[in-house]
Amino acid sequence: MKQFEITPIIEGPKFGPIDTTFTNSSLWMMIAVLGVIVLFGLGSGRKLIPGRLQSFGEICYEFIMDMLRETTGPEAVKFFPLVFALFFFILFANLLGMNPWAFTTTSHLAVTAALSFFVVGMVFVIGIIKNGTRFFKIFAPSGLPFIMYFLIVPIEIISFIARPVALSVRLFANMMAGHVMLKVFAIFIAFLVGSGGVLAGAAIVPIIGTTAIVALEFLVAALQAFVFAILTCVYLNDVYHVDH
């Protein structure tokens, strides 16, 4: 799996457990970040009648804003830059990874897990800061018979702990599986063509398959970014609505 390998570009010093080595992963993260900044930097004009880029910027702004308002509520507008950054960082990382020779930063569990634990940890910390101990009511929904709490509370706690795991594995596994599947189909093409004869002609089947999967992967790239962003909104909902 050469495409997932992390190779150092610039050796960096280590500060305790922190390794500052600049790798291909770091490079593509920076490219994604700069891509988002350039796109929205150009798309943040303030003309009364917007051009194409400005229109695009405003559509994206309102798309994320509506998502946050509908899922979490108008009081969560504070988190708008975070959700916006998460969505477009993941979207750009996923889409850039679709280029041949590019490195898909989101196909690494380290990146998705760091983002997921950050989001869920942030929800936990801010939930406690805002609500105090009342925040723990999210584990005990009101209006149940007393005996049910012995069952519901552990389930709620486990599901809360599972959130970052599910969030990180969903994104990482989707991105990796897509790339692996593409690779398998592509290898199959090479194998069939290499065999020659009728089998070489049969290579048309995996060629069509690969093309279809490329299209599917573009969909998955956008969809997973959306899923990550909207789940962030759903989890942020707990901060503001402790009583389900």
Binding site: G12, P17, S25, I37, L82, A85, A110
Partner: peptide
């Protein structure tokens, strides 16, 4: 360690600029 370090830097930069 390196991935997370550069993720914090790049995502932090993106967040701040946005």
């Amino acid at each position: 360690s390196s991935q997370i370090f550069w993720l914090v830097i790049s995502f932090g930069l993106l967040y701040l600029v946005l």
